[in-house]
Design a protein around this nucleic acid. Structure first.
Lengths: 198, 198
DNA sequence: CAACACACATACACTCCGTATGTCAACTCA
DNA sequence: TGAGTTGACATACGGAGTGTATGTGTGTTG
């Protein structure tokens, strides 16, 4: 079995390590996750890890990149399904809140990522979600729907608001009820961006 | 010298350890800070640390509590100086952004705190900044200035937006310019909370 | 003043990361 | 095709760090 080339094998081990790391980081957090346990669960040793990713942070970076790409793709799809850009922006924001409820996203991308890798906008993956939101804001400004302001700033604050909303929902007792309140508050805040009719 | 009672001595060692920890955590981050180095700089050993704080996280919690109390007090003062509650809310938000630019606050309270202690609202100190903002929002709702919505949700999102704004400013090349953009965006977003004249 | 309590120091066991070295299969090329 | 080489990964080792168990000296109390 397995007529694989060396490069294919290597891609496979990378994928296995990243998959194990996603689980371990999400469950125990980056700091508490043991590389020995990680690699063992993937049927490998730390040798493979250091060979492929350099060090522990390198593995975290790879995991974050993968998650971020998935999140950006989902946000794009959801935004595209909306009737117009404004509804798209709101839908993206709500989607971001809901994604941030998943342990993998919350723990790895939103908590450990910034703590161990630094500011998200400086990541190699360039924080796809942020870019997605920024582009939507830029379109809305061009259309005159949103007030002229720095799109990067707006995207930053919107995503930040969504993140904290998600942390709140994730830690509360009644997620159903709190999620509704958080989404409502997000919508209200976002409306501040709208160009006033006045 | 030193006609001190035992309890006074203990308070003093706690204060010394917390002070050293603030420096070390802010400079190296919680994970990379060594307890041996920490305590040595305070003229003590790890024995004192484990006796007073239980474990490394306990020390982080104590540091975070202290910083949080200071931040809440500053926010309260700044909010009180404003002419009305609405200006107070904006001033608090801007102050929060500016405080988050200080390395101690950013690194310890905003990055390592959530990563190692979990959701801020569940901290024993109960996140004074958040409570401060929430109370201001409650007053504004009572006055009919802000739309009726969940004050906790609004406070959460506002603080989250401010936090991300600060991370952005701290990591950028031109803090002066970016800070202005961030503050502007914050103001615009916050205006979404205002009751529409309709 | 004798006995205790307690704040803190010391010593030890364990885990974990990173690196240096080893090994074996896959690829190359004569 | 087979000897040499490369490279992906495993193994072995050293250093550092946390947490705990035990020791010690000073302050407190009856």
């Amino acid at each position: 079995m397995a007529g694989k080339k060396r490069s294919e094998m290597m891609e496979e081990t990378r994928a296995k390590l990243i998959a194990s790391a996603r689980k371990a980081f999400a469950e125990k957090g980056f700091a508490a996750a043991s590389m020995d346990d990680l690699t063992a669960e993937a049927g490998l040793t730390r040798g493979a890890l250091y060979h492929n990713f350099g060090d522990k942070r390198g593995l975290l970076q790879a995991v974050v990149d993968q998650l971020d790409a998935e999140m950006a793709a989902r946000a794009r799809d959801i935004g595209a399904k909306a009737g117009n850009d404004w509804d798209g922006l709101l839908a993206e924001g709500v989607a971001y809140i809901e994604m941030a409820l998943e342990p993998e996203v919350q723990r790895i991308v939103l908590l450990d990522g910034p703590a161990f890798l630094g500011d998200p906008s400086q990541w190699p993956s360039q924080n796809g979600c942020l870019q997605e939101t920024r582009r939507t804001v830029e379109r809305l400004i061009a259309q005159g729907i949103v007030r002229p302001l720095d799109p990067e700033a707006a995207a930053r604050l919107l995503n930040g608001a969504a993140l904290n909303a998600a942390l709140w929902v994730a830690a509360c007792d009644d997620p159903q009820d709190v999620l509704a309140k958080a989404v409502e508050a997000f919508r209200v805040l976002a409306e501040g961006l709208l160009a006033r009719p006045s």
